[in-house]
Design a protein around this nucleic acid. Structure first.
Length: 196
DNA sequence: CGATCCCGCCATTCT
DNA sequence: AGAATGGCGGGATCG
């Protein structure tokens, strides 16, 4: 009764019925309505934000974009994944897990480069042309939809995970394989810097 | 018993 | 400094 998946379903139910596409809602309100603490809401929001169903407006404020763009978002993620040579090689080459055929020896897990941002405000958006939004006021740098902390968050991890799924043969993936690709290799330094 | 998952402490990163 | 975020260890639960 407290699973994250159930919480997420309730979240969607509430946001779709009492918020409506294009409207805003506050994190606190959702926590209250769901009878849970803020911490859990962040988990849900991060994922929904990763698939662009939610957009952060300001602190504590988010807007519901609906499921309308979901397919487009997935398509963009898939395109980005298909563009990553290392990633493709990782799947086609010999390797642990779903072994298929074989040539070289073990490959070094590629570092999927999704939000390789230098600035901030990111999303899957990248594509090509300078399409829509002709600069203007609050540019992409520090618009209302802040983002300084987007990198290395549950959000990017979520997008990367989806990318793996989207290009995986038969759309199947083992947790071990996903982990080996998504988790950056440890170094003595990183281990030493571990908390405590 | 190993694999999963939830709770919530507390480090980070904003205002 | 206080508030907003969210990483992550550890205990609870599942199969």
């Amino acid at each position: 009764m407290k699973s994250l998946s159930l919480l997420c379903k309730k979240f969607l139910g509430i946001v779709e019925s009492s918020v409506g596409t294009g409207n805003e809602f506050s994190l606190d309100t959702m926590a209250l309505k769901l009878g849970t603490n803020r911490r859990r809401i962040y988990d849900i929001i991060n994922v929904l934000e990763a698939v662009e169903m939610i957009v952060k407006q300001s602190k504590n404020q988010y807007s519901w974009k609906g499921r309308g763009e979901l397919l487009h978002t997935l398509a963009k993620l898939k395109a980005m994944a298909a563009d990553d040579a290392d990633l493709l090689h990782w799947f086609t080459g010999t390797n642990s897990g779903t072994g298929s055929g074989g040539d070289k020896e073990n490959l070094v897990p590629p570092t999927v480069s999704v939000a390789r941002q230098q600035g901030q405000s990111s999303s899957v958006m990248d594509e090509s042309s300078q399409d829509s939004i002709p600069d203007d006021a609050v540019s992409c740098d520090d618009g209302p939809a802040r983002g300084g902390r987007w990198d290395k968050s549950l959000g990017v991890l979520c997008q990367k995970f989806l990318m793996l799924f989207l290009i995986a043969p038969k759309h199947e993936l083992t947790l071990d394989k996903a982990g080996s690709i998504l988790m950056p290799m440890k170094t003595l330094q990183s281990v030493a810097l571990k908390r405590r």
